[in-house]
Design a protein around this nucleic acid. Sequence first.
DNA 1: GTATATGCAAAGGGTTTGCACGGTT
DNA 2: AACCGTGCAAACCCTTTGCATATAC
Lengths: 149, 149
Amino acid sequence: MASEDWDRRLHEHGFRITPQRQLVLEAVERLQHGTPETILVEVQRTATGVNLSTVYRTLEVLESVGLVTHAHIGHGAPTYHAVDEELHIHLVCDRCSAVASVPAAVASTFVERLRSEQGFTTDISHMSIHGHCAKCEGKSGEDLTDDEL
Amino acid sequence: MASEDWDRRLHEHGFRITPQRQLVLEAVERLQHGTPETILVEVQRTATGVNLSTVYRTLEVLESVGLVTHAHIGHGAPTYHAVDEELHIHLVCDRCSAVASVPAAVASTFVERLRSEQGFTTDISHMSIHGHCAKCEGKSGEDLTDDEL
DNA sequence: GTATATGCAAAGGGTTTGCACGGTT
DNA sequence: AACCGTGCAAACCCTTTGCATATAC
């Protein structure tokens, strides 16, 4: 999505153009992986008055018009991405909490299989795979140092 | 896991055998897909005094000894499964909220690829794939009737 | 008898909502 | 001018925690 498109995109869907919507979108693009809370902080570097509930409502709007997506990579808040980032999936290590972003291509045959065998259309940007990263494989479950999902 | 194993399993890990732990495990086995809340209700059919916080603590214990697992199939509470159920993954429709359980085998080549290419060991029982089911494919995003993830 | 587990109630994180005001169209 | 969007505060859902009591060992 070209950066000049964002306002047109909102407009076409009957939404108004506001500073908050622009700031939230820019914050998501800058952060690459942002939770509502971190997005708020980023937005507030420019406009201190913006409210958390506005961030939530704005993200919902931006997602509905296809400017951002989100994925759940942990127990807590979802992570938002701008749609013009490279499409990727998240590999989440439940031992050390490391999150690896890998190109969506590694899932393409799987996604195709779900379509042909199950009639299911996968939302790739939403995909988070849990397990253990190479570093943690072999460690016992006792050495958990972090929040599990 | 044979049903006579559950208490041995707890015991081996230094946990005590309590009615609550037995009831919660049995509830999970009966429900097949249960949230903490629905598990509580199921448990309370037998023992009304059991508390929600006990269910949470018990699920944590049962999961740590490998008797149950959980997956996140929606925005809200996680879903728990007994480990002796057939291993499956969840396909979650973000339009109509339908959840399909499909054999883990459909993901086996994908999982193998993550292992060989990324050194990542997937927790298959935890895998939830979001997208659109066959019925909803083609519908616009406007006909949402339910809670999105 | 002693350490662990439970029940209860309060607190906590994340998210949503009602309402009045302010800004975009 | 009309309506949509925002800020604020309260409410909400889900989960965790502190503490006193009860129970498994």
